[in-house]
């Protein structure tokens, strides 16, 4: 609420938002959202948002805090189901399947659409057990050797293997912040998701760890479709191919990252990226 008020006091509510400008839609969409509204009880947090996540691309969701980008991201794998008063309307599709449809099993959905959180949250278990957690519950490995293999490749892909290969049995909570976050990424990709949602994955990390994570995101897009919420415009510019700008629960502009950062079409986007508020 505070953020909304402060944004309003900047006079930004004089500027009308009439549907998103730019290119919110694409041909090769992994996920597509149409006319999405999200309510917390009587409060509407997301207003009529429509756009696509392009396959094997990194899409960055940016905007001032409180603009609803995290809320929106959590809709994509139904993490908002955990909040009883949260109510989602509109159409969200993964490969043409309705995410909030009756046919969709949230368990399967969350296996296909993985999530990395703002604060690294490794389980209080060993490094090995952390990565093996997903494959184990989903029954992806038939024997120990296969599980070992999955753990190893996931750690390799997350760029963590060389650092921890000698201490796979030590607790995951004993790693440094950046390592913990990469462990969480390894944990997520161990179940071979199709989409990875990242909610400000580097905000709790130091610049060096952040750079490592950004590098990792860059590599991961070869295999996965990625949506990343970020506070830092530089980060969005570095890691993403597409950028969506959110403002007060609405999508203002979406398009190629280069385009948005060099030549935004909407006044609000320009104000934001030029640092006038946010």
């Amino acid at each position: 609420m505070v953020d909304i008020i402060s944004a309003k006091s900047l006079g930004s509510n004089d500027i009308k938002i009439e549907g998103a400008v730019g290119e919110p839609f694409c041909d090769d969409a992994k996920m597509s959202m149409r006319n999405v509204d999200v309510f917390y009880g009587d409060n509407q947090a997301i207003h009529d948002i429509s756009f696509d996540l392009e396959k094997n691309q990194v899409t960055a969701l940016i905007g001032p805090s409180g603009c609803g980008k995290s809320t929106f991201l959590r809709c994509l794998n139904r993490m908002n189901d955990l909040i009883p008063i949260c109510n989602v309307k509109g159409s969200l599709q993964l490969d043409g399947e309705e995410i909030y449809g009756k046919q969709m099993d949230p368990v399967l959905l969350r296996a296909r659409v993985g999530m990395v959180f703002q604060k690294p949250n490794p389980f209080p278990k060993s490094i090995y057990e952390n990565v093996a957690y997903g494959p184990k519950i989903h029954g992806l490995a038939t024997d120990k050797a296969e599980l070992d293999e999955i753990v190893e490749t996931s750690l390799i892909k997350a760029g963590l293997f060389n650092e921890v290969k000698d201490r796979l049995d030590s607790p995951g909570t004993g790693l440094s912040g950046g390592q913990q976050q990469r462990l969480c990424i390894a944990r997520t990709i161990a179940v071979s998701p199709e989409v990875i949602l990242m909610d400000e994955p580097a905000s709790a990390l130091d610049p060096i760890a952040t750079a490592v994570i950004e590098e990792l995101i860059h590599e991961l897009k070869e295999k996965y479709t990625i949506a990343i919420v970020t506070h830092s415009m530089q980060q969005a510019a570095r890691v993403s191919q597409k950028t969506a700008y959110f403002h007060l629960g609405q999508l203002v502009e979406m398009g190629d990252t280069k385009q948005i950062f060099t030549n935004p079409s909407h006044e609000l986007t320009e104000n934001y990226i030029s640092g006038r508020f946010g």
Binding site: L108, R110, A111, M115, N121, P122, F123, Y133, H138, V191
Partner: peptide, 15 residues
């Protein structure tokens, strides 16, 4: 127990 742990597990598709 921190909510983050619970979310981490549910977010991976655990029931």
């Amino acid at each position: 127990v921190p909510v983050a742990l619970k979310e981490g597990s549910l977010g991976m598709g655990a029931t």
